[in-house]
């Protein structure tokens, strides 16, 4: 820029007329266009290579190592069956038609126990999070309960309820309720105070504040708590079924595990463990992960992670 131009700009009257209304709208529309970013969805091929392929490779590696250990006769074949033996065991169960009913027995208990835990854990979590004396009184106990392995409750539950469904549900509830309640407490604690202030100025006080501001704001933590609560339900259920197994209770996965052990059926034991794993992971992948992703994505909390 030359010096003459500089002088001429400086000589222009400082008080120019302000933009007319339509100009402002043009400028703000232009700024909006400049500052808005469009987020593209990741293409399917990259989802496959980035998310699907790595676990498949890991599973294949485990199978290879397992097969090598079997072929090298590290242990007697009845102690260390081959992957194919386990597969055949699963296949036999399928042909006998028992596999689905066994899974259903456990799954229905797990889901029902989880749902009851949600109904109990949610109000407890809300009370602990929002009422100071309640928090002081039972907050530490609630997080302490999470560190007790669910198996530890089984003997007590058997003494109270005998070999009944009540025993199984009691163990599931003792495992899942604290983790769901704690998830909600963590979710509420993480709510940014500005949302509560904004809610109060808008008139969302008391129960309306809880409903319209506090609960939706705490949802990400709550969903994480539910996911963990499901994992605890499933684990506790297996512990309960394994120990409190009785023909009257029907054959679930835990009981089947115990029967396979009694029959020294190692392929059956491993096959059942795989089924337990598959159901646990399956529920998480098919139900909780999509919900969690949806909650986070709608709040723009997933776009940063790429």
């Amino acid at each position: 820029m030359s010096s003459t131009e500089l002088t001429s700009t400086a000589l222009e009257p400082a008080e120019t007329t302000a933009d007319s209304s339509s100009d402002v709208s043009d400028i703000s529309a232009g700024l909006d266009a400049l500052e808005t970013q469009t987020v593209e969805r990741t293409p399917l091929v990259r989802v496959f290579t980035g998310k699907v392929l790595p676990p498949l490779i890991a599973i294949a590696l485990v199978l290879v190592v397992w097969q090598l250990a079997y072929s090298a006769h590290l242990k007697r074949p009845d102690l260390l069956p081959s992957p194919l033996d386990v597969w055949n065991s699963l296949h036999d169960q399928w042909l006998q038609g028992t596999i689905l009913s066994v899974i259903w027995t456990s799954l229905s208990r797990g889901v029902l126990g989880f749902l009851i835990s949600v109904l109990i854990g949610t109000p407890i979590g809300l009370l602990v999070a929002r009422v100071k004396p309640v928090r002081a009184a039972i907050g530490p106990i609630l997080s302490g309960l999470q560190s007790i392995p669910s198996v530890a409750w089984v003997p007590a539950a058997v003494i109270w309820f005998g070999l009944s469904n009540a025993t199984i549900y009691a163990v599931v509830l003792l495992g899942a309720v604290p983790s769901i309640a704690n998830g909600l407490v963590a979710g509420v604690d993480q709510v940014q105070p500005i949302y509560l202030r904004a809610g109060r100025t808008l008139g969302a006080t008391g129960l309306r504040g809880v409903r319209h501001v506090l609960l939706p704001a705490a949802l990400p933590g709550y969903v994480a708590g539910l996911k963990q609560g499901w994992a605890f339900s499933w684990r506790s259920l297996m512990a309960a079924e394994l120990i409190a197994s009785s023909p009257a209770l029907g054959l679930g996965l835990g009981a089947q595990l115990e029967f396979s052990r009694e029959n020294l059926d190692m392929p059956g034991v491993l096959a059942t463990i795989i089924l337990i794993l598959l159901v646990g992971i399956g529920i998480e992948l098919l139900i909780f992960n999509p919900i969690e992703r949806r909650v986070l994505r709608s709040r723009g909390l997933l776009t940063a992670r790429r």
Partner: peptide
């Protein structure tokens, strides 16, 4: 009656 308040942070609810 009650005054409206705007903050430095937008304080919009991200779930809506």
């Amino acid at each position: 009656g009650r005054a409206a308040l705007m903050f430095q942070e937008h304080a919009l609810f991200p779930w809506l």
